[in-house]
Design a protein around this nucleic acid. Structure first.
Lengths: 374, 374
DNA sequence: TGCACTTTCGCAACAGTGTTGCCAAAGTGG
DNA sequence: CCACTTTGGCAACACTGTTGCGAAAGTGCA
């Protein structure tokens, strides 16, 4: 629907390479590494050492990158490590559910350094709620000891993430059509990004790929090209897909409707009108006090999804999962293994939606303009 | 698994822009348009008219692009149309099933200009079959009145499309591990690409997006960023996914396992060991002489898939579908509409696997080196 | 017929990219 | 102390798309 593809000019090329270097340095920072030398950057990007020197010099001039000690010599001049200046910029991410505003302040690498929660009733008129949201965000913005690059917001309901306009907000119809992004941009004078809560929650997994999974087998490379599915079981059942390191939102931004997958053709009637939807079966099992049954059902859905998309792992989140985290993780993993798809299963983080929203705000720094935004 | 992401240098930028222009011109040629002017190319790529002039001048020097008349004036110098020189290069695509080699010769736009079929028993020893395959391809190569850019091969079974090495070939275990791509490259002295038959069949849809769908409503833009699923029902049930204009192959090249999606938790046991797999149900319906039932089952699977991925349309192919094409198209569309996902449903082309394989060979010309190959 | 105007498109000079050749810096090992 | 290795920067370079300007090729009006 946008311009099909974009031509690349010199500025685009520069920002692409700069973003690539920053992304590699962020990976290193999140992995706990001391730093990456220019030579290593050259090898991993395919660029010339000279080009890397120029690029890193620019980034150091901007304050985004700094030298961090030097490596032991291997017979010649020792390598000097470069590292992301994680305290040079900050980002704010927020989770708007019906009753609360949960906001986090993260450093440049996307790690949370502070969080605040305050009551916020979306039932209020829009004209009253918007200033309250902005005020809540400002209290977190004020905590940042360095410039904030942007604000991300994750919330329910279908919405258009490109324009930041809400479509329908379940339970709060008076928000329909609200240009939330424009409103907040005007109030905060900062770039604002808006996306669905499941999408931002899925993004929050990327920097912390251990994801509460098994600690030792965390050899799972943080390749930005990896794929996983985030399954969210709370009052409903939804999913977000990260394919090849990027969110897959679908043609009409409707991807991730996982709950109304039919797994029992003659099953009970779901509120959507069909029979045997996974969501209906899962919620029924939960209501019947059988979380194990719900977990196994979720496992079947996860197996279907994993077979179709060949994802690298599954991440579970949502209120119902949080009530029995280990049960869900074990049972889903067992069903997957049972069906010949032994995949690592992780758990989402408590502040996932807000943290992922912050990553959304940081994203422009780490993904160049050449990267296609589906 | 590969290098996570690649840095971009000037040659990469040039090839990216050249490929972009070629892709736009191919779109125009396939759409039946007379040509595209430099100004229009500039608008659609976001590049300067000057840059487009330079790029097209290079492409004209290579013979890939030619001037094609001029438009009516709108008050000034009339625009001169540029068009892809569709007869400047050719490509060969082949479909290897167990018994036949079906090969097509296509022009630069991917349109078939000749096809040949010859018997070829994959049961033969590899050392005998490989020369026969090469000989069969040479007969088609000899038909090309201009240079051939490469050869693509589509076939069953898990295989590694990046290296062109076969993993397991169902029914012909002696092919396991055969480096088919390297063998054919050495014999034909041309670039060779190898991929799964469902994948190449899906690719074949891209240039012909009318896809036997409803004729008038073919306003469906041929945005290279569109998404669809190709569902193949023959002796088995498989799928290929084109998301955002690119094949999604998954982390371990295993995406598209659609047949063993569970849609009936307590259904009959499938050969894979689970219960209620869509493939088992579909094949049972076909065996019972109920193609309509099979079609409706396929529709349920398509609806599950469409909800999860938010694809733009569904394309059906395979022997069983070919036996009752309109029945399948109508029934699948009906089920989709029934479930609130009214999507256009098209039919694959008869030579889809071979034609898509040819497109695989042409792909390097139309997708720059900057495009990430998942 | 002539002139003003619009639009397309190319030539020349320019800014900025990554690349190459070369050299200083900073270690190790004899 | 000196060869040697390795790192990383400086300067010149080749090439990209961009800008300024002008020629070409039409239309429309006097």
């Amino acid at each position: 629907m946008n311009l099909p593809t974009a031509g690349a000019n010199l500025p685009a090329l520069r920002s692409h390479n700069a973003a690539l270097v920053l992304a590699l340095l962020r990976d290193c920072a999140l992995r706990g590494g001391a730093g990456v030398s220019r030579q290593e950057l050259a090898e991993r990007t395919g660029l010339t050492p000279q080009a890397v020197s120029k690029i890193t010099a620019r980034l150091r001039a901007e304050g985004l990158v700094e030298e961090a000690g030097r490596r032991a010599s291997t017979g010649g001049k020792p390598r000097t490590d470069l590292a992301l200046a994680v305290r040079a910029r900050y980002a704010v991410g927020a989770h708007l559910d019906g009753e609360r505003l949960t906001a986090v302040l993260t450093d440049l690498a996307g790690r949370t350094v502070a969080d605040r929660t305050l009551p916020l009733d979306l039932g209020l008129p829009v004209a009253e709620a918007l200033p309250a949201i902005a005020a809540g965000l400002r209290t977190v913005l004020a905590l940042a000891p360095a410039p904030v690059v942007g604000v991300g917001v994750g919330m329910r309901g279908p919405l258009d993430h490109t324009t930041g306009v809400l479509h329908r907000v379940t339970g709060f119809p008076h928000w329909s059509g609200c240009p939330l992004r424009a409103e907040l941009t005007a109030r905060l004078h900062l770039p604002v990004a808006v996306d669905k809560n499941t999408n931002t929650a899925a993004l929050s997994v990327l920097p912390h790929q251990d994801g509460n999974g098994d600690g030792d087998a965390a050899a799972a490379d943080s390749d930005p090209g990896d794929s996983f599915a985030y399954l969210h079981l709370g009052t409903g059942l939804g999913a977000a897909l990260v394919l090849g390191g990027a969110l897959h939102r679908g043609g009409r931004t409707g991807a991730g409707e996982f709950g109304h997958q039919v797994v029992q053709l003659d099953g009970p009637v779901c509120k959507c009108g069909n029979r045997g939807c996974l969501e209906a079966l899962c919620l029924a099992a939960v209501a019947a006090g059988d979380p194990r049954g719900a977990a196994r059902l979720l496992g079947v859905g996860a197996a279907n999804l994993a077979a179709l998309l060949d994802v690298d792992r599954i991440v579970l989140g949502g209120g119902t999962v949080a009530a029995h985290p280990d049960l869900f993780r074990t049972e889903v993993a067992a069903v997957l293994a049972d069906r010949g798809r032994p995949l690592p299963v992780g758990l989402g983080r408590p502040l996932a939606v807000a943290e992922g929203a912050a990553l959304l705000a940081l994203a422009p720094l780490f993904s160049g303009t050449l990267a296609a935004a589906a």
